[in-house]
Design a protein around this nucleic acid. Sequence first.
DNA 1: TATTGTTATACTCTATAACTATA
DNA 2: TATAGTTATAGAGTATAACAATA
Lengths: 157, 157
Amino acid sequence: MKQIKMNSANDNALFVADDVALKQFMGYHLKRATNIVMSDLATTLAPYELRMLTYTALVLIVDNPGIRQFQLAVAMDIERPNLVIIIDELEQRELILREKVPTDRRAYAMHPTLAGKQLYKKATKAVNTHDKKMFKHVSKTDQKFLIATLQKLIDQY
Amino acid sequence: MKQIKMNSANDNALFVADDVALKQFMGYHLKRATNIVMSDLATTLAPYELRMLTYTALVLIVDNPGIRQFQLAVAMDIERPNLVIIIDELEQRELILREKVPTDRRAYAMHPTLAGKQLYKKATKAVNTHDKKMFKHVSKTDQKFLIATLQKLIDQY
DNA sequence: TATTGTTATACTCTATAACTATA
DNA sequence: TATAGTTATAGAGTATAACAATA
């Protein structure tokens, strides 16, 4: 949301769209900030042909080799069916491999390929730069406080 | 995202899905927290047959009677075409009215109906309760700090 | 020429039901 | 019976191009 200028009755004066009712909500500020960050993240990941979800999945597979699809779905807090096409995409691009689990033939263990690990590194460097840019006006101390505050909310659920 | 328990080689031990690479990003925490808040907001608004976007539009029309569609689109930071169906919905439910602007016959000025103002009041009460619940573990002081911090980011863009 | 509102369209994210093959 | 992965499908949010009416 943006505060916008509206022509008012008198010529030179500017009237700003009143969002005072929304500004009382923490969630409003949170959503606005997140929209901005997510939009810039998308731009950041585009050159690597990754979106937030494919990047997140790639990171979690690289850092948790052998992870099963249902575990990844829980970790990413998305439904199993929605994970399928994400994994399909990473597999088709040969960034990860699905391997049959001998002890449970229903399941697949996912592993990164060399290309997957290399893309992870490059993309993560870019995401790091993006994240620093977004929060460049927030001190390290304040960032830690922000994380702690958000974590309190997250831990409730 | 959730930290999840994974069976490890030894029976009783639990292995938590490693999201340390993602946790380094402010955006990760921001997105997780926002997902939780937006999900609860949707549940909160459902009894009023409102979604975040229809509620936001209703609030801005009530608080800015006579606002034009393009102005509302700017305020909500969405594209004009996407606003059309939101306004259609509010108009069909007779919560708002589109009125031709005599001085610019291309434009519509939007006004809330009595029903719109009444629904605004009821829904806002519910959203207030929701917002308080979400941030009940965060002190008022910390909430103000959080808003100020997010505002720094928002003001950049 | 530019702007307001609209239509059409496409992509992404999300959610649920139901299937298959295994356990 | 229950679980892992899949298919099909639908709702919702988002973005762009192009049009009619009007400025």
